[in-house]
Amino acid sequence: MREIVFDTETTGLSPKDGHRLVEIGCVELVNRVETGRTHHVYFNPNRSMPSEAEAVHGLSAIFLSDKPSFADEAGALLDFIGDAPLVAHNATFDFTFLNAELEQCGLETISLTRMIDTLAIARQRHPGAKHSLDALCSRYGIDRSHRVKHGALLDAQLLSQLYVELTGGRQIGLSLRSEPAAETPSDMCATTNPGWRTSRPVRTPRPHMASEEELLRHKAFIAKLADPLWDSTA
């Protein structure tokens, strides 16, 4: 199955306030394995960049001034994602901006039925825990040491690893079930080695009681002790 993990960077929090998409990064997965194919584009938003947004992703209006508009790159983006399910963290945010840009270009928007939200999955699996991308990467041991600022492609690459872990981890391909599911430690043991309980050689139980000869030798040794502390009759 082909899936696209993606992330976006924007000028603000809502298209309704005039904010625009400035970066998108996509990572292709086939059967939950990265293929190496990616799609990454910066967009000129044709508006100013608020300092709060620039502090998050580091993209200035000057840097974006010579980049293509979303309309110029929309076709290539749609060709890359095709009809695959789209995976994002807090996916409603990314879908809202992506569809706002498509609508502004007069293009068909992407159905929300294609949306897979890793934030919702994480909340279900780890209720009460922190669910930011950074926190979840730490939980699953995903290296994010090179993540200084938010970046759409980098975050999509981290998210692709996280998505695999949230949906079964690296053991998913070893499952004997017809439907992929998260493995418990006992499931993984049984899956990787179904005969583990009967493969060990049977060993004769070891004797744990002293033999008659050992008891006599111990008694003779004790008799040689002078004034032992435990002998109150001495």
Rank of each mutant, 00 (worst) to 15 (best):
E9R: 10
F6H: 02
T10N: 13
E23D: 11
V30M: 04
R37P: 00
E28F: 07
F43A: 06
G25I: 10
G18L: 05
L13F: 13
P15E: 10
S14M: 14
V41N: 12
F6M: 03
P15V: 10
L13H: 11
H19V: 09
E34W: 02
D17P: 00
L13S: 12
K16Y: 03
L21A: 03
L29I: 11
V33F: 02
L21R: 04
E9S: 09
P15W: 09
V27Y: 12
E28M: 05
T10G: 12
F6V: 02
K16Q: 13
H39W: 15
V41D: 13
S14H: 15
E34C: 11
H19Y: 13
V41A: 14
L29K: 12
R32K: 06
L21Y: 03
L29Y: 13
G36Q: 07
L29H: 12
R20A: 07
G12T: 05
N44M: 06
E28Y: 02
F6E: 01
L21D: 03
E28S: 04
R20C: 06
R32N: 04
V22L: 07
D17C: 00
V30P: 00
T38G: 05
E28P: 02
Y42K: 06
I24V: 14
L13D: 09
R37T: 10
H40M: 04
T38K: 13
R37H: 15
I24N: 05
D17W: 00
T11H: 02
D7Q: 12
I4H: 08
T8Y: 10
I4V: 14
G25T: 08
V27M: 13
D7L: 06
G25K: 11
S14Q: 15
K16H: 09
E9V: 06
L21P: 01
H19L: 11
R20W: 04
H19G: 11
R37N: 15
T10P: 11
H39P: 00
I4K: 09
R32I: 01
C26E: 01
L21K: 08
H19P: 09
G12V: 03
E28T: 04
R32W: 04
Y42H: 10
H39A: 04
R20F: 02
H19S: 12
C26H: 01
C26L: 02
E28K: 06
V27F: 12
R32C: 00
E9H: 11
T38W: 05
P15M: 10
T35P: 01
S14I: 14
C26F: 00
I24T: 08
V27C: 11
T10I: 14
C26D: 01
G36W: 07
N44V: 08
I4G: 08
C26S: 01
S14K: 15
S14E: 15
T35F: 01
I4Y: 09
H40F: 10
G25A: 13
T8H: 12
P15G: 11
N44F: 09
I24C: 07
L21S: 05
R20S: 06
T35R: 02
T11A: 05
N44W: 09
K16A: 14
E28Q: 10
F43I: 07
V41P: 02
D7I: 07
N44Y: 09
V41I: 14
D17G: 00
I4M: 10
N31F: 07
G12Y: 03
V41Y: 11
S14T: 15
G18Q: 05
P15I: 09
F43P: 06
H39R: 10
V33D: 05
R20G: 04
